[in-house]
Design a protein around this nucleic acid. Sequence first.
RNA 1: GGUGAGGUGGCAGAGUGGUUAUGCGUUCGCCUGCAGAGCGAAUUUAUAGGGGUUCGAAUCCCUUCCUCACCUCCA
Length: 471
Amino acid sequence: MKIFDTLSAAEKELDISGIVRIYVCGVTVYDESHIGHARTIIVFDTLRRFLESDGLKVKFIQNFTDVDDKIINRAKAENASADTITTKYIASYFDEFDRLNVKRADSYPKATEHINDMISLIKGLIDKDFAYVSKNGVYFSVSKFKEYGKLSKKKIDELIAGARVEVDETKRDPLDFALWKFADDYPRWESPWGHGRPGWHIECSAMCLKHLGSDFEIHGGGRDLIFPHHENEIAQSECYTGRNFAKIWMHVGMVTIKGEKMSKSLGNTKSVDFVLKKWGPNIIRLFCLSGHYSKPIDYSEDLLKETIAKWRQVENCYVELTHPEKDELSNPPPNLNIKVIQPKIALYKENFNDALKSDFNTPLALNFFFSIVNEVNNLAAHDFVTESISNSILPEFKKILEVLGLKITEPPHEESNRIEELIAKRNAFRTQKKYQEADVIREQLEHVGVILIDHKGRTLWIKQEKICSEV
RNA sequence: GGUGAGGUGGCAGAGUGGUUAUGCGUUCGCCUGCAGAGCGAAUUUAUAGGGGUUCGAAUCCCUUCCUCACCUCCA
């Protein structure tokens, strides 16, 4: 599988010789997550699912930043402890991303639980003369790392020239960044240099090295983290270990709204909770995968509405495949025979995999998935979804749903029984040609989200996922 | 100002030298008791503008214009 690596600015073959180790920069837990965060997480969740479906072993680590000025400010504003804030938002993170059907990472390390790891990393950097203690804290000396700027393709002198950062006179060089910041207020930790808090970037270095080691396979995050966050992570980690930090840097494009980046400061965010209530998890996942991960994607209601239509086709396909016609009752013409259909589906599935293996081209992969859906629905329209067809397609179909993290919900038994009773009643009316009465029942079912599919001599039904924004 | 990524039909979105992907939308048919799903046909013979290379370019080169992101916290 090839993935575009930001560092080498080229596609790189993913090393699958051992466990595929993935580290994704997660969120700072001081506020609600929005769909921008969700996109990044969904992309990596899907990547992970794809690798696992291919039989690979994946170790997936995603951190929570739980030490940060924004957290402290929020705590002050709410007259609560930082801990209260982070606990609250970690809980809501899990609640929301579980609803998005995001598989839990193997571990969710927190900055506050790795203070000692960070301290020993900083110590090592000071020993190797890559860092120094100053009045306000411990700083990484950017000029000591010759390759600084290699990820973001920035030149050091240009950075200085265009620097918008306030110059801190206590630093040797304006580009130096904090590894440890002295502080008297809480939360604070003891360190060999004085009490205070870790700088932002050091946590990821410490946690990557601890949980994944050096030269792990994929380091991911949003594009906006390339500079300075990931650039600084590379500097710290490579100076500390003397080894390559990560093999592939994979960055996910921003979610925009009306063409502008969605962000807190612009006040144009859509929270995960909001979009889940409005569109539901399947639509959100399909939407997030409908563009290439590296490009921006625009949150537009029109596009999301289109996605609903696709999802309805998927639901239809699923119901047809799970309720096939008996082989002996169906008589497909030669061109719709299983011998023709099966290789066709197999080809689509292969194309689906190939698309994902080519820099995780999810929009292309989704095309092939929908080709399968369409193929099945076409057969279904003529009552040709037979048991043998279903037997050959359903397992593949389910595998794809699993990779994409899509989930079809089926109603509980009691409800199903009630629905089927009504359908039996309706069909009785239909055989008597009492269509008005039959239609009343169909409308009644429609009101509770049940759509009927009439086939020769039998009626299938779909309990559609409820999507609030559907007109 | 610097750096990076882009500009494809009404919309979304592949394709990186040689059969006008594909999906959605719209229109008209067909199928159906009516629907759902589906089928057929039509809609625009798309590739930001201008140059160049080539037998041939959306695809390579030059140039102009435009958009977005990053250069401060950000997924």
